[in-house]
Design a protein around this nucleic acid. Structure first.
Lengths: 211, 211, 211, 211
DNA sequence: ACAAGCGGGACTACCCGTTGTT
DNA sequence: AACAACGGGTAGTCCCGCTTGT
């Protein structure tokens, strides 16, 4: 695949993703994508034999980016601190940071989008989504595991549950953010999540009561 | 509107909702709805002048049910306890209870579904969604407010943020549940949320560490 | 048929005719008629088993009105003058008079309207139209015949051709009037026609040259 | 637009026109056109984004043809005679000639057809029709003007009125022809019109009385 | 009490236009 | 440039009850 072909492919994927984020996959027409990408219909079908292929390519790319981000954030956290709990907290903080900087017109997660149009996609596609979430859980849970080992938490802590919770809080944050048109909620929720983790591990000194 | 007509309308809405939950609104064809509802094409359009009208009727109904549930759960909580914090915890517990009993084929929230196809709907529709979330927040935040007044929480507590968080956790739970095909995650997350609230208010004696 | 039923029937026909004059028969929906007439769908089909029946009833009524007008105008002309040529000229003048007084939003002739949607109607309907035009021709030609007998025209005169011409001039006048939104053309054309008849019969002293 | 595309476009227009002439625009379905043109549904909409566009293209083409014919006939008349009155008479005669040779299944004028379905078309479309009629009037009136200047007519002559009359007579002729299914009437009416013009200008020696 | 008149609800067929695709 | 299949929506039509006048 030549340099130019790769660029075109990316432009298509970008245009598609923007559209999907706004209106969902089903109502994102090939026409709209093609026009937004500034190419012809034929070109589109040259790069993606069918719309289904585009769907797969889209989450594949998203999954890869996601994994890179997850791994990247965790690697950075590990570089900054050797305490697994701190790593976890930093990991979450990096996410918050990212959302603060981001100014997306349509915040949200492609996985969630697909999940609400689940009937449209084949098992492969769903497997990619599940795998991606799985990966997030593994990365975060492994650090939580270490944190549990190091600090004896005040309450029973199930690393996998907490990892899922973290993922869920962000997904929930996306939805609130979409509805309100502002990623602020998302950031606030991540902060709450961090505070919860701190409380669980008994290290919370966060914001004091306002009394 | 006669009894029969109302029944037909309900059947249409039920069929539509099931379909939308599975595939999203855009790819839910009138044909599919009509067939699932056991009526003819013409009948559908007699009851709903356009698919957009169906969209509105659908969230309207969902918003009403939601509000009833929210109000109902809170009323029940208030009957069972006079302590606002307990009311909040019960309120959340009722939700968990509900999800435990429920065995939906496609768990999820219509609001979230719509939000991921936001481009399809008009402002009225979006306003209904926003209003509904607002209502949840008001109901829960008001009790949290009282709880803050009664119990002095260990950490600063922003009732509105926590109310939103509760909503978000459930939305996130839905997405995880959809992907995994099991509402168990959702229930677990609500439990975590309850535990967080308890920790914030310093009443947590939940599950002890497993050491 | 009771008084009320007759009234309803008329209201339907009136509403239908207005609509047909504006948009043609095909695109005049039963719904539009029914709404304009202030009745329900069921009522419409009670009075007219099918839209085709309405079509037939519509031209039938029009044909009757037309015949009455033609006969009425000629009868009046015969009362006012005993000279057949004068009768013919008066007959035409009465038409002009009528169009001058009329202030229709959509001038035109139902027959012409139907003729341009000929494919929609059955032979009976077309026969009614043809018969109506035939009648006009007979009435006018018979007087022209008499006029030819009485006055020896300067040029050969074919009464039937002239009668048709009169009809045609009015139909052409309608079309120009529709396009321009003003029946003035129609009136002017009838005056020209009268002048032609006068010239043919050698009695023209109409308007003198403007030199 | 390639040669083939142009051909397809023409075929569509031809098929559409034939159908419209028979049944009017509203009841001319895209399906019928498409089938008559021997193409597929999608192809139709590739060439004409909507049926409204077809409507516009249809009269536009008709208006152009009409203008060419009008200009062509007048140019020919001017080549054959230098007397403006003769030119006018020839101009009319050419029309008659044309109708004699023509053997249309559905004689008629697209403008008249549209005018009887006026409510369906937008202002642009109507403007095209009005402009086309205007042009006819200008061309004919200008020659009549010259004729008035050269020959002093016996009676006052308003060139614009006469030009409109000529147009109207042909429109009326079309309607009669449609109803009777024979363009003979039309030809006869044009002859009468010529005779009227001759009488007005005092040059009539047409057919003598049959006595 | 009976029928003419009328309203509401449902149905089939079709129409215009779009989608994904070659 | 063309196509087949499908999308949403409107067409005309029917039928079952309820009124209301007789």
């Amino acid at each position: 695949m030549s340099r130019k072909a790769t660029a075109t492919r990316q432009r298509i994927l970008d245009a598609a993703q923007a559209n999907v984020m706004e209106r969902g996959f089903a109502s994102t027409s090939v026409d709209a994508i093609q026009e937004a990408a500034g190419i012809s219909r034929g070109t589109f079908f040259y790069h993606f034999p069918s719309k289904d292929d585009l769907a797969r390519a889209l989450i594949l790319r998203h999954a890869e980016n996601d994994r890179e981000m997850t791994d990247g954030f965790m690697a950075r956290a590990e570089r900054l601190s050797s305490d697994p709990l701190q790593q976890v907290l930093l990991f979450l903080a990096f996410h918050e940071e990212m959302f603060q900087e981001t100014t997306m017109t349509d915040p949200g997660c492609l996985f969630a989008s697909y999940s609400y149009e689940a009937g449209l996609f084949d098992d492969d596609t769903h497997a990619i989504i599940e795998g991606s979430i799985e990966h997030f859980r593994r990365v975060l849970a492994s650090r939580l595991d270490a944190a549990v080992a190091r600090h004896s938490p005040r309450l029973a802590v199930d690393p996998e549950v907490l990892a899922d919770l973290a993922y869920g809080v962000m997904q929930g944050g996306f939805i609130l953010s979409r509805v309100r048109g502002d990623l602020g909620v998302m950031c606030e929720h991540i902060r709450q999540l961090r505070q919860y983790f701190e409380l669980l591990f008994g290290v919370a000194e966060g914001t004091q009561p306002q009394s």
